[in-house]
Every structure is written in structure tokens, then in C-alpha cells.
Design a protein around this nucleic acid. Structure first.
Lengths: 191, 191
DNA sequence: CGATTATGATACACGCTGTATCGTATGAGC
DNA sequence: GCTCATACGATACAGCGTGTATCATAATCG
């Protein structure tokens, strides 16, 4: 990639992250971003179709980081993954605030994680699931939307609990109970 | 209220509900609404500050309907309320689609219901709650955000399950398990 | 070094919002 | 029913953000 392009995109992404730490995502205009990045307004549209397009790039990076975090761990229990998730939320408050504030982005995030979770459930418990009253799609959706719901509540309440506490609530309130409702064993190891 | 005002507001609200059944709320402009209602564009601003203001009125009506539904019932169990809720969602698909698509409105709805739920929990189980590991605020938030999460999933999947089934999923996946995590008895009667 | 390509600056069209104005029509109160 | 207040429709207008077009300049690639 042309160095000029890389530089422009880097500056724009940095500017967006900066701005998101100062004001709600919706109130940010493209001109705000280009001014902060010291990049020509028209130049923006040579790389992105609109405001969401740039945000999507930052968003994708966050997802990638989250996934690589998980892959470097051997312990793949959902409890542990909950902890890692809340840790990343704490490290990127403003970004997660923006993602969870946007219906489009939070939906994207939810669907992405849901697919992973659903795969893990079906892969490891195909036989047991047939006896369950709850469709695995709904259980997976519930698990993830509850996780994001807890994160949303957490961010809206000034992180009045620690990462460990939130992970514990998630485990007690969501993971354990969802497994129980599905009729599965308590934890999942997904190698 | 002046009959002319009442007529204008009624026509505008009707037009918005019609449009919401045809296209996503975000794509609707104020001019769309006034054209459909056959009302002057400037007249709109004599009654509402913006697009969300009119929607808020329709939204408030929905909430009021939901609450009056609950008050006319003697059976105040959460299972029953789940059924009533999914029933109302089914009866007002487009409106709930719009509400759940909007972060501001879905948050308002969530906070509104959460307050009611929290009141019921604390009122009826104050003593037992002291022994619980989960803060009741989080449990109430989880209960409601899960309910809305299920409704959101339902609407996004062409209502592939019946109202009764969804209420059942809600009871098994959310209500029972939340009570269990809180260490409470299975049902709440709030009379 | 030469050719290509990205950038900055500027001007512009477009759509939507929200306000101001004024003549007309409709309802409220007596 | 008459009078006065007020809501309405129509229109013009300013503001703002988006997205496109153009062209001279600067940086990069090979």
C-alpha cells in the first residue's frame, strides 16, 4: 500500500478514536475527523464511503484483538472468556460505548460473537442438545445479548464494579443458567 | 385542546405509524410524515421539536397500553407478563422494530421496565436479597435486557416461533434462572 | 529521473432541518 | 351568530452536513 494512503488512514483512525473519547459518536462529523487529523475533507471520501465506514475499520480491529486474545489462551471456558471480554471493554471504554450506542455496530458485534458461541455449543454438545427444549440458536443469542447487556449497563454506571466482579455476575447470571436451561454440563472446553 | 390541534396531531401520528410499517424509522423524514398526513411542513414544528418527539408520543402510548394490560390482570407472575409482552410485540411489530432499532428508544423502554421490575423484586424479597451475591439492580437489568433481546431476535427472524413459545423460552432461560441466581423462590406475585 | 498517484483547496449541488412571514380559515367564547 | 383569537398552509430562507468535481501541487513507486 502507498505510504501516503497508509498515513492518511492511520491519521483518520487516530482522530476518530480521539474524538470518540471526547464526545458521542453520533455528534462527530466527517469534517471534525478530517480537521483533527489535518487531512483534506475531500480526501476522506477517497478512502471511506461515510462516517460508519471508518468506524467499521476501528471496530474490526477491536474484534480481531479480542479474538487473538482468546486464541492465545488455553483455557477456553466461557467464564474465562467473559473475563477477557470485560477486560477489553474496560481498556477501550469510549470505543465500546460508541459500538453499544450504535444499533448497527452493536448488532454486528452481537452477531459475530453469537456465531462463534453457537459453533462451540453445537460442536461440543450435539448429542445432548437434541433433548433440550431450548433451540441452541436462541440460547446462543441469549448468552451473547446478555453479555453485551451487562457490558452496556457497566459502562453506563461508571464501572462501579470490577472486571472480576462483572465476569462473576456473567458466569452466575448467564453462563451457568443458560447451560442449565439447555441441560448441558457446566463448562465448555473448546480446545 | 383545540380541535384543529388534536386533528393535526392525530393525522401526524397515524402517518408515522403507517410509514414505519413501510420503511425503517431512520429513513423517514419529517417531510415524508407531513406529506403523508397532508399537513403543512412548518405546522409540524408548531407541535413537535423534531422527528423523535412525535415518535416519543407514539412510544409513550405503547408503554401505557402495555401497563394497562398488566394492571387488568390479577396474575402478575413474570411468566404471564412475558406472554403479554410478546403478544403486544406481535401486535405492533413495526413499532417495536423501530423502538428496538433506535438506541435512544430501546434504552428508554428498557429503563422504564427495569424500574418496575426492580420495584417488584425489592418490595417482595427484601429480606432474601441480603443473602444474594448478585446485586438486584444487575439482576433486574439482566432480566429486562434479556427480554428485549429475545424480542429483538424474534422480530429479526420473522417470528419463527409463536408467542407462547417465546414466553416459554423467556421463562426457562431468563426468569427461572435469574430467580435461581438471586436465591429467590420461583415466582413473584406482586399484588 | 520520469510517470503515476495521492493530496489539498476550492467550489458546488443536494437534501434535510428549523425559522420567519403573511394571508386565510377554523374554532372558541360570549 | 358574531367577534376575536389562534391554528393552518404556503412560501421563502438560512444553516449544516454530505458527497462530487476539478485542478494544481506534492509525494511515491519503479
Amino acid at each position: 500500500m502507498d505510504r501516503r494512503v497508509a498515513r492518511t488512514k492511520r491519521l483518520l483512525a487516530q482522530a476518530l478514536v480521539e474524538l470518540v473519547n471526547e464526545q458521542p459518536y453520533e455528534t462527530i462529523t466527517i469534517r471534525d475527523i478530517t480537521d483533527r487529523a489535518d487531512i483534506g475533507y475531500a480526501t476522506y471520501f477517497r478512502h471511506y464511503e461515510g462516517k460508519d465506514d471508518l468506524m467499521l475499520e476501528v471496530f474490526t480491529q477491536i474484534i480481531t484483538d479480542l479474538e487473538s486474545l482468546h486464541e492465545t489462551r488455553i483455557d477456553h471456558s466461557f467464564e474465562r472468556e467473559g473475563y477477557l471480554f470485560f477486560q477489553q471493554v474496560a481498556d477501550n471504554r469510549a470505543l465500546y460505548r460508541s459500538i453499544l450506542d450504535s444499533r448497527a455496530f452493536s448488532r454486528k458485534l452481537r452477531e459475530h460473537i453469537t456465531l462463534i458461541v453457537l459453533d462451540q455449543i453445537v460442536e461440543n454438545h450435539a448429542d445432548e442438545l437434541e433433548r433440550s427444549e431450548i433451540p441452541p440458536e436462541i440460547a446462543a443469542h441469549h448468552l451473547v445479548s446478555s453479555l453485551l447487556g451487562l457490558a452496556d449497563w457497566w459502562l453506563s454506571n461508571d464501572q462501579s464494579y470490577t472486571v472480576v466482579q462483572m465476569a462473576r455476575f456473567y458466569e452466575r447470571l448467564v453462563v451457568q443458567t443458560t447451560w442449565h436451561a439447555l441441560g448441558l454440563s457446566n463448562t465448555i472446553a473448546s480446545t
